[in-house]
């Protein structure tokens, strides 16, 4: 289980010079560090930056990039946009749900995988598309998905689906 470590958070805060206006950057860095925003970390940030906790909670809830629940090591995004849907994206999503025993938006208890469904990744020609840890996999089938899942497990992953990962 990931524990939030105040030294790490202090480093992040110091990096942004304890600026109240850098709240989103700070939360983003915390999200990268822990793959979610732990409650005690939000309390700590509120205290250190002298920002009301209610405001931080509101910001953390507003943006999709922030999660209040721990996310898995590997982020799986299954596209259910029109083109992918027509080509069977729904079946791929169901395959993942069955294999990992989670629903869309949920994380496996071992914190390996987080499944989410998205409504178009702009790669319709590849449909049905699945993105795992920033890699695009086109023309997916249930069988390919199964293989992909078993090969991802245990791998390092970063829990992020950004193509070029900074820092």
């Amino acid at each position: 289980m990931l524990r939030s470590d105040p030294i790490k958070v202090k480093e992040i805060l110091k990096h942004y010079k304890y600026e109240q206006s850098s709240l989103i950057h700070i939360l983003q860095d915390i999200q990268v560090e822990y793959r979610y925003l732990p409650k005690e970390t939000m309390l700590f940030v509120a205290r250190e930056l002298k920002i009301p906790l209610s405001r931080i909670y509101s910001v953390a809830n507003f943006y999709n990039a922030f999660s209040l629940k721990p996310k898995g090591k590997h982020l799986i995004s299954v596209c259910l946009g029109t083109a992918c849907h027509v080509r069977g994206g729904k079946r791929i999503a169901e395959e993942v749900e069955r294999t990992l025993n989670v629903k869309s938006g949920e994380t496996t208890p071992d914190l390996e995988f987080t499944l989410e469904t998205v409504n178009c990744l702009g790669a319709c020609a590849l449909g049905p598309v699945v993105v795992v840890d920033g890699h695009y996999y086109g023309q997916m089938t249930s069988l390919k998905m199964k293989k992909l899942l078993s090969s991802s497990k245990g791998g390092r992953g970063n829990g992020k689906n950004e193509k070029d990962n900074k820092s």
């Binding site: 409650k39 209610s54 405001r55 909670y57 809830n61």
Partner: peptide, 26 residues
């Protein structure tokens, strides 16, 4: 001057809540 509550969530999930929907210290 307490800021104990805020608007939380987006769209039809929007609500006025205390942080974490728990009893507020503020």
């Amino acid at each position: 001057g307490k800021s104990a509550i805020s608007l939380v969530g987006r769209g039809f999930e929007r609500k006025v809540l205390t942080p974490f929907d728990e009893p507020s210290e503020d």
